[in-house]
Amino acid sequence: MTFRIRCTISIRDMDHIDLDSIAGLCRIDLADEERKTIAEQLDTMLTYMAQIKVVDVEGIEPMLHASAIHSILRDDQPGESFSTETALLNAPEQKNNQILVPRIVE
């Protein structure tokens, strides 16, 4: 069974999707074959999602969460936290009790 895709392509502004720029923003280095597949799929999915553009949302407040949330701050008291050893347990590389990374500032 397949579902009919309800909206037409005209609903979405068919701006060119600059996949390399988006992948760069989210720091994912795509392989060539992945780039091609994802570009096609992204287009299909955005076309489907664009059907929400026909809904009248005038005067409706965005619903950011499932429950009405408010800022919850705990008392400003130090609590228990991981020891250095525990915090470094899963570090891919470490040296002198610190996570080792390549030089960032020359």
Binding site: I28, I38, L46, K53, V55, V57, M63
Partner: peptide, 30 residues
């Protein structure tokens, strides 16, 4: 996972945020 991160990054990007992400949150309320 890559597909969803990329789609999510697209709908949050400054050019598309209002049309997708914010609008979706309004329809979510409906």
């Amino acid at each position: 996972v890559k597909r969803r991160i990329i789609l999510g990054t697209y709908v949050l990007s400054s050019d598309h945020r209002d049309a997708y992400y914010i609008r979706a949150q309004k329809v979510r309320r409906l």
